[in-house]
Amino acid sequence: MMSRIDDERYSFLAFARNHVFVTLFGIVAPVLLFACFIGYPIVYTIYLSFFEWNGMAPTKTFVGLANYSYMFGDKYFYISLENNLKWLVVSLAFPVVLGFLIAYAMRVRAVYFPTLLRTAIFFPVTMSLVAVGLMFLLILNPIFGAFDTVLRALGLGFLVSEWFGDYRIAIYTLAFVGGWAFTGLPMIFYFAGIGDVPKETFDAARIEGAGHLRMMLRVALPQLRSVTAVVVMLTLFESLKAFDLIAVMTKGAPFGRTNVLGYLVYLESFWNSRFGYGATVSVAILVLSIAIATLMLGTVFRGAFDV
């Protein structure tokens, strides 16, 4: 294309003159849509976080930083934040690590029926979390649930717990159910990624006498940095978005112990009609996700997205 990148006069306007169609429909239109449906909502959320508003009344009351100071003293905010972090840890440990191990096992044919299993593990990724939640409500039911029956049959009856009733484990139950539905995604990414790693590097390592552990850690993983970066980012945002399962399975019970930030926003805004405070928690989520993303891209995954 005629692009005068070599020219000092080259500017966006010069480009626009030469490429009217591309500029209009390829740049201006999407940027406008972004401004209306993504940019404006973000700005509005920040604006709203300085007000008190019940969502209906025509007037909003300016309260300055009151919502923020309330948030930092709000017990439920801290519980939710902690739950999001627990969720993130479980998601990184269970679906991501397991997804990698499964992908590796399938690549080295350490498992039978890899195609069937890959389909089975990926399938929950396509399920709505409402369906997944409902399903595990039945399976983890304290009286009629299949899971407890299996545990008892395996002689592990002492592990049987109130999966949703016990406030100490309820959030982990939810995170593991989420992990069950999420594992397929890291697995697919790693499966494709390992397929792109030059096979010769594995052969060479094997001839040098490396075992599977060494090959995973020293041969496969270092060559999968960009895949890991994508997967970890996806996991991160997935954990911060956690909402559906909670809405279906616990609604924050017991005693708000399974609240996460996303659900707190929904509760405060649409049930308690405290839109200002809901917006404040939204801002917290936003800051948190941008901060973590920037931190990770700047350190662990520096350069992983360079094309």
Partner: peptide, 13 residues
């Protein structure tokens, strides 16, 4: 580069 400039695929400085 010369050919592309003749073709108009690259601008002539």
């Amino acid at each position: 580069t010369t050919l592309n400039m003749i073709a108009g695929l690259e601008p002539i400085t």
